[in-house]
Design a protein around this nucleic acid. Structure first.
Length: 821
RNA sequence: GCCGACGUAGUCCAAUCGGCAGAGACGUGACGUUCAGGACGUCAAGGUUGUGGGUUCGAAUCCCACCGUCGGCACCA
């Protein structure tokens, strides 16, 4: 027989040609409306969601790696008896569209929409079960209207607010960036070093939910993602205290510390260069030096700060505070290692017990006093001791264990009115305003008399004008569009200006999952009726790169919208699965690197089914893989063998002979293996099990006429259907089916039928294999022990030694252990 | 520096509860089919499970230390 060819009755060979069958079925499924999911059916609903892509232009291998296995998962769930919603859409706002458009002179909307068109086409070639009738495109006014609506609800409740903040500013993109968009001090998009710039910005108050975001009860998320979010939120317990400033009776320095137990060792204080008190407290003699330092610090990029080798440089303000616990006057310094964005931008410096303070004290000749000792005695410190111990040099607390002292010091401070125990978070509020064009306009009117006024709901959406000069000029492009900017105040009807900024695109993705159930709903961001059937999302899949941004924002939005009364649950995604990334020679694929592998040539050559299967076969999904197309032949050959075998069977005269036990056992075993692998998203094991199963069927020569053989092939097709939907549909029809294989039920297995009748049991002496025996499955321990003790090879290797024990693992092994000595 | 994941055949990877190291695939080699190559089929070789220690009758699997690769965080008081 030739390659993938079946010589039919008429002598014509029919080859497996994916190019012929795949488009045919894609068209047929679409015409049949096979993937239109009803909101209500006689089955349980299951919402399976994979992260929507950014429409960058072409679907690359990374997209396939995310989507194809997700599609298999959704299809598996559907065959398992659920009514599955598996929608798709486009994350269509954001910087790349604007940057690309600027470069090519095309309007961002034109560029984006043509990319979407192209990517839809490419996605269809994958053969996924997306319900396109529910597609969401975020740059559509009918979508972003609800960004604005949610913004206004947040604004009313104080969850959206404006504040002057030293923002991360990218000089090249001429925009502010969220903390999450700054990678190693550089702009996530263009790699330009980021500088600080004071701007009035819009924030969402995610910190109001810091504590609740730390809890993951009731949801099944991978432990590493939970950990990443916990670390990002960075909750720490300690105390917030105030020390008075000498000569400034109505001001004090507030600071947060996790180590109140070390307070007797606080020999100086340090303020962040941007700290509001700096100007006020600086001694006249120091003014010049201090302002020089502050200016330099502000203009430094984060990159420069890091490249200073974390040298602890700073300047003395000439002012003094009082350490209320020791009564000492301690100098107030300013230094960059204290960050304005954390705590209150000021610290008590305890050089003996903090590495950074130690380095600073050494450099500037400040006193170092040990107050915690591991053993209660004082010793010479050549580095900071950050561990626990017993307090020394600590007045009334002398001898107290430091762990206990943390609480006691906070209590004393509270009594005296100096402060109290407190919790601090690393998490900052989410800066959402962008000085760019391609985003959702912020629905706020700046009125000279009324101040900030929300646009009335009836006037939404505030449309993003099309005729805008979006070339960057260091301000929001909308600011130069007078038709957009000039408006009237909704409250006093006087002349007013619109807000020229747009929203971070992460706002869009924070709630898109509630839009899918009914994307055309006009009376709210989410259709309550449709959402009642689907939400929250049962299964979410996506990349680990979203561990702390999208996934945290979406949780925040869900909780906030719940508290506003619009959702009835607090977690958006019940189960989360994070797949790994496809890399090329160890490097992330990206357009800017120019190392993007296009799937199209592989789809052209081997078909979508082989390519899907190969992506799933390449390794465990959660681990990702280094791209190497070498193995794709393997999955292609597998499908060709399947094709040949099924076609031969389809033209065979009859298959009604008696069942064959071994073939039935193989079938049950394969169903079990594949089912369990699919449940765990271990596609590689599932594919391997199918390959093995096919070989087993091929090996059952002479059984072709049996009912078991027929069942075996049909089950194989059913098991393959979620992963390779086209070929399984084609062959299913060839076997005489009248309706789609994708409407069939997942095959079930009988555990009893999986078990082998006879098993090979290994016989060991002291853990070394001496013999193997074939025994009936389920043989008793006593029987196995007897077999082992009487075994001639065991006797020979025992050589008269005393047997101290016999370990029996039923159906597996017997280990004869000899006594010691 | 801190946190996390992963190290199994030349390569990608299996091994469900601690129980025979090998399911599947790539590559390599031999043989068959073929005029030949390809394709297809049959078979084969290939191992100190990263290193060292520990627990155990028994460790790829559990524990400790180290090395390596990748990812995240990175002056967070």
């Amino acid at each position: 027989m030739d390659e993938g060819v079946f010589i039919g009755g008429d002598g014509m060979a029919e080859r497996y040609e994916p190019k012929k069958i795949e488009p045919k079925w894609q068209k047929a499924w679409e015409e049949q409306g096979l993937y239109r999911t009803p909101d209500v059916s006689d089955k349980d609903n299951h919402y399976f969601l994979t992260m929507y892509p950014y429409p960058s232009g072409d679907l690359h291998i990374g997209h396939w790696y995310v989507m194809a296995p997700s599609d298999a998962g959704a299809r598996f769930k559907r065959m398992s008896g659920y009514n599955v919603l598996f929608p798709m859409g486009f994350d269509a706002f954001g910087l790349p569209a604007e940057n690309a458009a600027i470069k090519r002179g095309i309007h961002p909307r034109t560029w984006t929409m043509s990319n979407i068109e192209n990517m839809r086409r490419q996605m269809r070639s994958m053969g996924p079960m997306f319900d396109w009738s529910r597609e969401v495109v975020t740059c559509d006014p009918s979508y972003y209207k609800w960004n604005q609506w949610i913004f206004l609800k947040f604004f009313e409740k104080g969850l959206a607010y404006r504040a002057l903040a030293p923002a991360n500013w990218c000089p090249k993109d001429e925009t502010v960036l969220a903390n999450e968009q700054v990678i190693n001090g550089r702009c996530e998009r263009c790699d330009t070093p980021v500088v600080k710039k004071d701007l009035v910005q819009w924030f969402f108050k995610i910190t109001a939910y810091a504590d609740e975001l730390l809890r993951f009860e009731g949801i099944e998320w991978p432990e590493p993602i939970q950990l990443a979010q916990r670390n990002w939120i960075g909750r720490s317990e300690g105390a917030r205290l105030r020390f008075p400033i000498e000569g400034q009776p109505d001001a004090s320095i507030e600071f947060f510390t996790t180590r109140p137990d070390t307070i007797f060792g606080a020999t100086f204080m340090v303020l962040a260069p941007e700290h509001p008190l700096v100007e006020r407290i600086t001694a006249p003699a120091k003014r010049h030096e201090v302002s020089k330092y502050v200016d330099a610090a502000r203009n430094r990029t984060d990159i420069e700060r890091l490249s200073l080798e974390r040298e602890k440089i700073g300047v003395f303000t000439g002012a003094y505070a009082t350490n209320l616990f020791t009564g000492e006057r301690i100098p107030i310094w300013i230094a960059e290692y204290v960050l304005m964005g954390y705590g209150s931008g000021a610290i008590m410096a305890v050089p003996a017990h903090d590495e950074r303070d130690f380095a600073f004290a050494k450099k500037h000749g400040l006193p170092i006093r040990q107050v915690i000792s591991p053993d209660g005695t004082e010793q010479e410190l050549d580095e900071a001791y950050a561990g626990e111990g017993v307090m020394v040099n600590s007045g009334p607390f002398e001898g107290t264990p430091s762990v206990e002292a943390k609480r006691k010091i906070a209590e004393l401070a509270k009594q005296k009115g100096w402060g109290d125990a407190a919790v601090s978070y690393r998490l900052r509020d989410w800066l959402i305003s962008r000085q760019r064009y391609w985003g959702t306009p912020i629905p706020i009117v700046h009125c000279p008399t009324c101040g900030l006024v929300g646009v009335p709901e009836s006037e939404l959406p505030v449309l993003l004008p099309e005729d805008v000069d979006f070339q960057p000029h260091g301000e929001s492009p909308l600011a130069r569009h007078s038709g957009f900017m000039n408006t009237t105040c909704p409250r006093c009807q006087g002349p007013a200006k619109r807000d020229p900024d747009t929203m971070d695109a992460f706002v869009d993705s924070s709630w898109y999952m509630w839009r899918y159930p009914n994307p055309r709903y006009e009376r709210g961001f989410a259709d309550p009726e449709a959402n009642r059937h689907w939400s929250p999302v049962d299964q979410y899949t996506g990349g680990t790169e979203h561990a702390v941004m999208h996934l945290l924002y979406a949780r925040f939005f869900t909780k906030a919208l719940r508290d506003l009364g619009y959702l009835w649950f607090g977690e958006p995604f019940v189960r989360l699965f994070n797949q790994g990334q496809i890399v090329l020679r160890g490097r992330r694929m990206s357009k800017s690197r120019g190392n993007v592998e296009a799937p199209d040539t592989y789809v052209e050559q081997y078909g979508a089914d082989s390519f899907r299967l190969f992506l799933m076969f390449i390794g465990p999904w959660e681990e990702g893989a280094d791209w190497d197309a070498a193995g794709i032949e393997g999955t292609f050959k597998f499908l060709k063998r399947l094709w040949t075998l099924v076609l031969a069977h389809s033209s065979a005269p009859a298959h009604d002979g008696p069942p064959i036990e071994e073939l039935e056992r193989l079938r049950h075993r394969s169903i079990k293996r594949v089912t369990e692998a699919m449940e765990r998203f271990r596609w590689n094991i599932a594919v391997a099990a199918l390959m093995e199963y096919l070989r087993d069927i091929q090996a059952a020569k002479g059984s072709e006429q049996s009912i078991s053989y027929d069942r075996a092939l049909r089950s194989l097709l059913l098991l393959l259907a979620p992963m390779a939907p086209h070929i399984s549909e084609e062959l299913w029809q060839r076997l005489g089916a009248t309706r789609s294989i994708h409407l069939e039920s997942w095959p079930t297995y009988d555990p009893a039928a999986v078990a082998e009748r006879e098993v090979t049991v290994v016989i060991q002496v002291n853990g070394k294999v001496r013999d193997r025996v074939i025994v009936p499955a389920g043989s008793s321990d006593a029987e196995l022990t007897r077999l082992a003790r009487e075994n001639p090879r065991v006797k020979a290797s025992l050589d008269g030694a005393r047997v101290s024990r016999v370990v029996v693992v039923r159906d597996r092994l017997v280990n004869v252990v000899t006594g010691k000595g």
